[in-house]
Amino acid sequence: MSVVVAKNIRKSFGGLQVLKGVSLTVEGGEVVALIGGSGSGKSTFLRCLNGLESVDSGEIEVAGHRMSRKPAELRRLRRDVGIVFQSYNLFPHLTAGENIMLAPVQVKGIGKDAARSEAKRCLSLVGLGDRFEAYPDMLSGGQQQRVAIARSLAMQPKVLLFDEVTSALDPELTGEVLAVIEKLARDGMTMILVTHEMGFARRVANRTIFMRDGIIHEEGPSAEFFSSPKTPELRAFLHAEVG
């Protein structure tokens, strides 16, 4: 069953056209990696799927929600579509557990005891079951990013979006975060990842998409995509990334 359906998405900022007719369908349980150079439109496209950016034209349906600018409908969509950014955006005055509890209590109206139990479960899922009472400044960057992932998981989303979540981390901490995402993939979470980690995309994503100049330039099953790129532009991009 298709969980994400985007049709002919166009988006401009002023006179700059960033998305020039992007269409994508993602099935339940599928992991899709978006790769491409800076300015190719991949992060803007991801933000459109969550309603953080409005589209100029086209249609989007995610987790059964048709994209709308009506606040109530946007809130319903965001309950089912989590997004994790490269910056962790944790509240420094709240513990890891309190950061995770916040949205289930305030957005979903869940009682604090149930939210606390769910926060502990989600922290355990990302390997931080013993850090419920830790404040963000007591955690490494990799740990903070894992708390951010746990915060999204606590909303029990149907789709998770990741926007370059390891780009601010050193290699060791990057490995911690990628291991969590890989486990989510094994558990069947539907995910779309904007990433520059080519080896990870090849290993974990069912499908990889190369965006260039605001369009999907090439896509395919990840193993084939990386081993036999069809266009010179993708070959050049992969060579630059690996080399």
Results as ranks from 00 to 15, higher is better:
193 L>W: 05
157 P>G: 02
181 I>M: 15
199 G>M: 07
198 M>G: 10
213 D>V: 06
212 R>E: 13
161 L>M: 06
147 V>S: 02
182 E>D: 07
155 M>C: 08
212 R>K: 13
186 R>D: 11
211 M>Q: 07
187 D>T: 09
165 V>W: 00
150 A>T: 00
193 L>D: 01
130 D>Y: 08
155 M>L: 15
211 M>R: 10
204 V>M: 06
209 I>Q: 03
145 Q>C: 05
156 Q>H: 14
183 K>I: 03
165 V>G: 02
218 E>N: 10
137 D>Y: 15
148 A>F: 03
215 I>E: 15
150 A>H: 02
190 T>Y: 09
140 S>T: 12
161 L>R: 00
212 R>F: 12
199 G>Q: 04
166 T>V: 00
176 E>C: 08
209 I>W: 07
169 L>F: 01
191 M>P: 02
208 T>R: 14
170 D>F: 03
208 T>L: 09
215 I>T: 13
144 Q>E: 01
153 L>I: 06
151 R>K: 11
212 R>Q: 12
149 I>G: 00
193 L>A: 14
166 T>E: 04
165 V>R: 01
144 Q>H: 04
178 L>F: 11
173 L>M: 15
134 A>N: 06
158 K>A: 13
219 E>S: 14
177 V>G: 11
213 D>A: 15
179 A>K: 15
140 S>C: 12
195 T>K: 04
208 T>P: 06
182 E>M: 13
160 L>H: 01
211 M>T: 04
193 L>N: 04
209 I>G: 07
163 D>C: 03
128 L>K: 10
175 G>S: 10
210 F>W: 00
176 E>T: 14
150 A>E: 00
151 R>Q: 01
157 P>T: 02
201 A>Q: 10
138 M>V: 07
166 T>I: 04
139 L>Q: 14
194 V>I: 14
185 A>E: 02
133 E>G: 14
141 G>N: 09
194 V>M: 06
153 L>M: 08
178 L>R: 05
217 H>C: 09
173 L>T: 09
188 G>Y: 08
156 Q>G: 04
216 I>C: 05
138 M>L: 15
209 I>V: 15
176 E>L: 15
189 M>E: 07
157 P>A: 00
156 Q>K: 15
141 G>L: 07
142 G>P: 09
186 R>Q: 15
179 A>V: 13
204 V>K: 06
127 G>I: 03
218 E>K: 08
215 I>K: 12
164 E>D: 08
141 G>D: 09
218 E>C: 06
184 L>G: 02
127 G>K: 06
184 L>M: 11
179 A>L: 12
198 M>E: 12
132 F>Y: 15
157 P>K: 01
183 K>M: 13
190 T>F: 02
187 D>L: 14
181 I>R: 12
165 V>A: 05
216 I>T: 06
174 T>W: 00
141 G>H: 14
219 E>I: 07
157 P>C: 03
194 V>C: 09
186 R>P: 04
200 F>K: 05
162 F>G: 01
143 Q>G: 10
202 R>Y: 01
167 S>M: 05
189 M>K: 12
212 R>M: 06
131 R>V: 02
217 H>R: 12
193 L>H: 11
212 R>S: 06
149 I>W: 00
163 D>N: 10
